[in-house]
Each structure stands twice: as C-alpha cells, then as structure tokens.
C-alpha cells in the first residue's frame, strides 16, 4: 500500500511540512472533516486590500467538525504560510465561533492546531481584541466541560497572544521542532538588543522555545516526533485527560508555577534549567530523539521512570 517503503512501519509524514488542511486530514479520521464557513463563502479579511496585500479565502484558519477515533470533535488549523498564521479580525472570529459552538454542542473535545506568530500586525488592534475573545471563549468551553487540546509543531510555532491562548488549553502536545513562547526571538532582539537574545543563534532559540524545553518544564504535556500519526495519537490521549478549571486545580497549578520560579528563577538559559533540574548529562539533550528525551527527563518532570 505504501510504495517505496518496504518495511512494516508506515512512512512518517511530517506535520511541520504539511499545510493546515493536510494536517487536519492527517489527524482526524479519514474523510470525516466538514468545514464550517469554508473557502467558498469567501469571508476574507476586510483590512488587507487597502494595504495592497492578497487575501485568503479562509483567512488563514480552517475550522470545522470531524471524528477522532470515532468521537465527534471540533477542530481548527492555522495556516502558517498565510501571514504567519497571525490572528486578524476574521481569523480570530472563526476561532471564537468554533469555541462557542463547542460550549453549546459539547463535543468530545476541541483540537487547536496552532501555528501562529500571534496578532496580525496589519490589523493589529482588531487582532489583539480577537485574541482576547479567543481566550474567553476557550475558557468558556472548558468551563462547560469540553476539553481543548493544542498541537504545536508548525513552522511558525506559537507566539504572542496565541502563546497565552495555548496555555489556556487543557493540554498541549509539541514536537521538538515546535516552538512556544510569548515574545519571539526576533521581537526580543529588536526591542532589547542582541545581547539579550541573539535571534540568529539557532541552538539558543531552539533550546529556549523548542518542544523539549517546554516538555521538561511541564508547559507541554506530550513530546512527539514530527509526524502526523504521532500528533494524532497525542491528541486522542490528551482529550482523555482534561485539566479541571476548578479552584483546587488552579491552586495546584499555582503551586507548580511558584515552585518553578523558586527552583529555576535564577536561570537565564534553558541549559541552566536542565542542569538545575539535575537531568543527567544535560548537554546531550538537544541530540536525543523524542523517545530518548522523554526517558532522560522523566525524573526531572517528577514522573516514575
């Protein structure tokens, strides 16, 4: 069935290299996705033509309904190729609408395939307000008991306000190549100088924002290979273990974040965190594949080996 793949393992299909639509097709049950407000509706950004910029028929985000392992989920997938997956008025409103639908319809969960530099600067103010509306709608869906799971493995990572949105989710799965933060390397270098963060230092950028460090910190719940099937399995697993939004759960999260600050507050480099976390042989961590990395840091994450 798979030409050019003589072994028994299915060929890996890169999540990072796939378009937003291909990612959805690869993660949801085959043929199950139905798009809401699809390209034929031509609901495009009203703010780009005046700037001489091309629009996209889906404004850079695909939203709809599908099945994951036979269970109904709602899903959104940001297209990093279009304006860096950034959130404008229409793009944001589609995400808000999807999360409100979740609150009303109570599907088995919502999947957010995040690939975004944050607020779309060409419609900056509307983008910021839209991100705020996404946060409220997301927490509204969670409060209604619908788990929201984020997947981060695209070329743009997840930055700016969308980095906050990501951490409003129940859980996140990331690949090593996925990046998560709020102020991206270019923004920090431009505002604080190259001494603060050299955006051209790729090793520094990856160890600061990349999936491995986020997983070690407990910001990401699962670390997966750059593979559609791996993300699919991760999404299914995370939907099954939602994170409560009640007072006790938030108090525990508060303790966890306070402990992180106490343990690692003196660190200005991810490598310092790894050393402080007493991960054996921290310098080799960037070289490990996802599986070996998970084993290497299990104790540092407080897990049974």
């Amino acid at each position: 069935m798979t030409p050019g793949n003589p072994g028994h393992l299915p060929a890996r299909r890169s999540y990072r290299e796939a378009t937003a639509r291909r990612r959805l097709a690869g993660i949801l049950d085959p043929g199950s996705f139905t798009e809401l407000l699809g390209p034929s509706e031509r609901v495009t950004s009203p703010h780009l033509a005046g700037l001489g910029l091309a629009v996209a028929f889906d404004d850079g985000v695909v939203v709809g309904r599908g099945l994951l392992g036979g269970r109904v989920v709602l899903a959104a997938s940001q297209e990093g190729g279009f304006m860096g997956g950034a959130v404008g008025e229409v793009h944001g409103a589609k995400l808000v609408g999807l999360l409100r639908r979740a609150e009303r319809e109570r599907p088995a969960g919502v999947l957010l395939l995040l690939d975004s530099g944050g607020v779309r600067l060409q419609e900056a103010n509307a983008g910021l307000v839209a991100v705020s509306e996404i946060m409220r709608a997301l927490l509204g869906a969670r409060a209604a008991g619908v788990p929201v799971v984020g997947l981060i493995g695209g070329g743009w990572g997840c930055f700016g306000g969308m980095g906050i949105v990501a951490r409003c989710c129940d859980a996140l799965a990331m690949s090593e190549e996925g990046r998560l933060g709020i102020s991206g390397p270019d923004v920090i270098e431009a505002t604080k100088g190259v001494e603060e963060l050299d955006a051209a230092d790729r090793a520094l950028v990856w160890r600061t924002y990349g999936g491995k460090h986020r997983y070690l910190l407990g910001e990401a719940d699962l670390l997966v290979e750059d593979d559609l099937a791996a993300f699919r399995d991760a999404a299914a697993a995370l939907l099954a273990s939602p994170r409560s939004l009640d007072e006790g759960a938030l108090a525990r999260e508060h303790e966890r974040l306070a402990r992180r600050l106490a343990d690692f507050g003196g660190c200005t480099d991810a490598a310092d965190v790894w050393r402080a976390a007493a991960v054996p042989d921290p310098d080799r961590l960037p070289l490990l594949d996802a599986d070996a990395f998970r084993r290497a840091v299990a104790a540092a994450r407080g897990e049974e080996p």
């Binding site: 910001e219 974040l257 200005t268």
Partner: peptide, 15 residues
C-alpha cells in the same frame, strides 16, 4: 520581554 521570562515560560504564567 527578556530571555529569562521566555526560558521560564512567561506565556504559561499569563495563561
């Protein structure tokens, strides 16, 4: 905006 805040996961604290 600082490297330290990003290393510690500022977006997680804000979330």
């Amino acid at each position: 905006m600082s490297r330290r805040d990003e290393v510690l996961g500022l977006n997680g604290y804000l979330g």
